[in-house]
Amino acid sequence: MQIKVDAEGDDAAAHDLYYWLRQDRELRRHAKADLTQAAEASDRMNAGEIINMFVSNGLAAASLLVNIVVAWRAARPSPQGTVTFDRDGTTVTVHDTSEETLRRVVDLLASAPPGGASGATDTGESSASSGSGNR
């Protein structure tokens, strides 16, 4: 799975989230994170950094990852921007921390990969958003 951060001009945002993920001992039991340079840095990702996560399937690991991202977003002094989770071609973009958004991310992370293979590519895209704004 890849995690991309668009923090509206904050070039260090992906690195900061990566640090948060690496510091959580419980998450380290279920996941491994690597910070890499994107092959193509887009306008949406100023620094062009991507967090590659190798997460064990399961609701506990998914919920833990989502909770850490929510805490990271809440702790940021500047506008949070978006965090995009991409797993096997399925994408969920987090614009807020509404219950619906969090449920969709957990569902994406806890589900089996499309087609039953970790290398499967599906073109499905989902964008989770809420009119309630950032919390």
Rank of each mutant, 00 (worst) to 15 (best):
A128V: 09
L108Y: 02
A12C: 02
L64S: 04
G124K: 12
F54G: 01
T82L: 04
D6E: 08
A39E: 12
R103N: 10
L109A: 03
Q2E: 13
K32R: 14
E8K: 11
D10E: 10
D16M: 06
D24N: 15
V55S: 03
A33I: 01
Y19T: 15
L102W: 00
R104L: 14
H30W: 02
A7C: 07
L102N: 07
D16G: 07
K4N: 07
V94M: 15
R135E: 10
F85G: 09
R28Y: 00
L17K: 05
A41K: 12
R87Y: 02
S129V: 12
T36A: 12
G116W: 00
T93S: 13
P114H: 12
L65H: 01
D107C: 08
E100S: 11
I50K: 07
G48A: 05
E125S: 11
F85Q: 00
H95P: 00
V94Q: 09
V70P: 02
G124P: 00
D86Q: 12
P77D: 14
H30M: 13
A60Y: 00
H30V: 07
S127L: 11
V106T: 15
D96L: 01
M53Y: 06
E49V: 05
D16S: 15
H95W: 13
V83H: 07
S42T: 15
R28S: 08
A117F: 09
L65M: 15
A62D: 04
S98T: 11
L21F: 00
S78D: 07
S111G: 06
T97Y: 04
K32L: 01
N46F: 02
D43V: 13
I50L: 12
H15M: 10
T123V: 06
W20K: 10
V94L: 15
N52H: 10
R25A: 13
A39N: 11
W72T: 08
G116D: 06
F85E: 05
T90W: 08
S63Y: 00
R22K: 15
M45Q: 13
W72F: 14
I50D: 11
L17D: 01
A71V: 08
G124I: 08
R25Q: 15
V92H: 04
S111M: 05
R135F: 06
R103V: 14
F85P: 11
G58D: 00
G124F: 11
T91H: 08
G89E: 03
M45G: 14
A75Q: 09
S56G: 09
K32C: 03
M1V: 07
D11S: 14
K32M: 07
S42F: 02
T91I: 15
E100G: 09
Q80E: 09
N134D: 13
G81Y: 01
T121I: 15
K32I: 03
S132P: 00
A75P: 05
K4C: 06
T36Y: 04
V5D: 00
A74M: 12
H95M: 03
T84F: 00
A41R: 10
D11T: 10
V5E: 02
Q80R: 14
A31I: 06
Q80K: 12
N67D: 14
P79R: 11
A61K: 06
V106G: 02
W72P: 09
N67W: 01
T84S: 12
V94R: 03
R87A: 10
V69H: 03
G48F: 04
S130F: 00
G115V: 05
G119T: 08
A120W: 05
A112I: 05
M1T: 11
A38I: 02
A31L: 02
S126L: 08
Q80D: 03
V94E: 04
S78L: 13
